[in-house]
Write a protein that binds this DNA or RNA. Structure first.
Lengths: 307, 307
DNA sequence: GTGAAAGCGCTAACAG
DNA sequence: CTGTTAGCGCTTTCAC
């Protein structure tokens, strides 16, 4: 039971393979008689024909594949694996809606190979949680020649689109939620150091009022200093950790950077980010793939806060 | 800056493309002089050559692609998206170690199309959380001609390998943990009805002592009947919900079917499943792909419990 | 309205 | 030890 090819269809329908291809791809510049069209279509169905993407990709130099490369946390936490699920799933869904298939890959180690991207001729890639260090090595020698969108990574290169939460608005909104400016901030580490710095700076808090999570003990020590203060926690999973420590999430506003507000108890002050904002993002990616000279407008895209 | 092909290498090294191919693929049946070998290898490097997988796949009728199809929960819960992350990530990692790339796809709707599998000529697929109903439609007409492993799905077809937690041992171990047989069970719904039934049956509990999660209210009603009883919760995310309801997880043993025991407070009685058990599974998949007549031994594989 | 044929980049059987 | 060549399945130009 071998797979049927257009050649098989051509033979069965007694037409040329070119004609079959025209019909299956609904090529507008060719006129095909309705008679042959239905005949071919029917036979294709009978033979359970599906197009062979390897062959088409080879010919067209377009694969219809989009890569999502997730960089593992340099400093792994129990919730590391949970952080980007929503992002991953959302991207997959949106790419799927546009007809793309998604190759998912975790990248690890300190000299990752990006060969897959070139071997598979990906049409575009999303990089999540990339650190500048491990990435600049590659972009130094060659870009990828394809659209690259980086998520939660402040990569210094105008080639790439950068997507991240709208931290600035977040801090404003959080202040409003607390009724006062927060006095401390607990945050999860980003692989990208620069992004971490940006966040700290935007929070408007002094360095010593910010704790970047490392361990339960470190957190405990830090929180002890702010027992009755109002504060901010970035990342809902980390917030759970904070709750265990403080016994409550009162006087705390949580920024749900992992898009999972639901895992928090009801009643907690929390802010989320619009997953729908990825729709235009994927649209842009698609635009870049279709038109070589698609207007690339903004290189920075911010996910909007919602409450 | 076009991508280099073996033809380019051949020209630059002044050898035939066959020779280049032999060298790059390290073909054992050919003997190549060290001189040409190093020459070719050097040039390949200089040109930043990577093999074009579309072309190779077309020729070899093997793509080096493995699909992971995740079936969305029919009855979605807030934690639905979190349930299979660990499984997904582990499978990707293991497939990657064997040189495969992974296509990830969520499947939804009630007449899903499996065309991708055939169009992309996947070498194998994992199906996660499949219900018999939506799946039998496809297997009725044609298998896929490739190894198919189903996870958390009790599909009635000897074609497929079925992987699931070792529920039987779990219940025994949970009993030991509680010091007595559990008096009730709260569980998360599986898409696969049959699997749900199996679990219920293995628990040894009467139907009315089992609650399959539907809503906060339903859970509340159910738990009220067992305030001081010892019980079992299947799935750690659901356990969090139970904790909010009961105020504690005392007298409860949790089966961490999502491999995320860490999200529970410390001190909770919990059981996990060996993610390492996926290693031989992926090995079997690989065996099936390499040898057409690989011994397929066991059709049922159980992930072992750990505490 | 339809078809012949080139060629995408690669592998491998066969010839030398 | 190395090269020639057919062919994987598809798209598309150009000719009829």
């Amino acid at each position: 039971m071998k797979k049927a090819t257009i050649k098989d269809i051509a033979k069965a329908a007694d037409v040329s393979i070119a004609t079959v291809s025209y019909i299956l791809n609904d090529v507008k510049t060719q006129s095909i008689s309705d008679e042959t069209r239905v005949k071919v279509l029917k036979i294709a169905q009978q033979l359970h024909y599906v197009t062979n993407r390897s062959a088409r990709s080879l010919k067209l130099q377009k694969t219809g594949l989009i890569g999502i490369l997730l960089f593992r946390d340099i400093a792994p936490q129990p919730w590391s694996d949970l952080k980007y699920v929503k992002t991953l799933y959302t991207l997959e869904r949106l790419c799927g809606e546009l007809g793309y298939h998604v190759i998912f890959m975790q990248v690890d180690g300190d000299a990752p190979s990006y060969d897959m991207i070139r071997e598979r001729n990906l049409d575009g890639v999303f990089l999540i949680n990339v650190d500048q260090e491990r990435f600049s090595s590659v972009t130094r020698f060659f870009g990828f020649g394809i659209p690259v969108f980086v998520i939660d990574s402040h990569i210094e290169d105008s080639l790439f689109h950068k997507i991240m939460p709208d931290f600035e608005s977040s801090f404003r909104a959080a202040g409003a939620l607390l009724g006062t400016a927060p006095e401390f901030l607990v945050m999860d580490a980003y692989n990208n150091a620069k992004l971490g710095d940006t966040v700290k700076q935007l929070s408007g808090l002094d360095e010593e009022r910010i704790y970047v999570y490392e361990s339960k003990e470190g957190l405990e020590d830090f929180l002890r200093k702010y027992t009755d203060c109002k504060g901010l926690v970035m990342n809902e999973f980390l917030a759970n950790e904070v709750m265990r420590n403080r016994g409550t999430l009162e006087r705390i506003a949580v920024l749900c950077t992992s898009h999972c507000p639901d895992i928090l108890p009801i009643g907690v002050a929390k802010l989320s980010y619009e997953l729908n904002d990825y729709k235009p993002v994927v649209g842009m990616m698609n635009g870049n793939i279709q038109d070589a000279d698609y207007s690339n407008r903004e290189k920075f895209i911010y996910l909007s806060v919602t409450s």
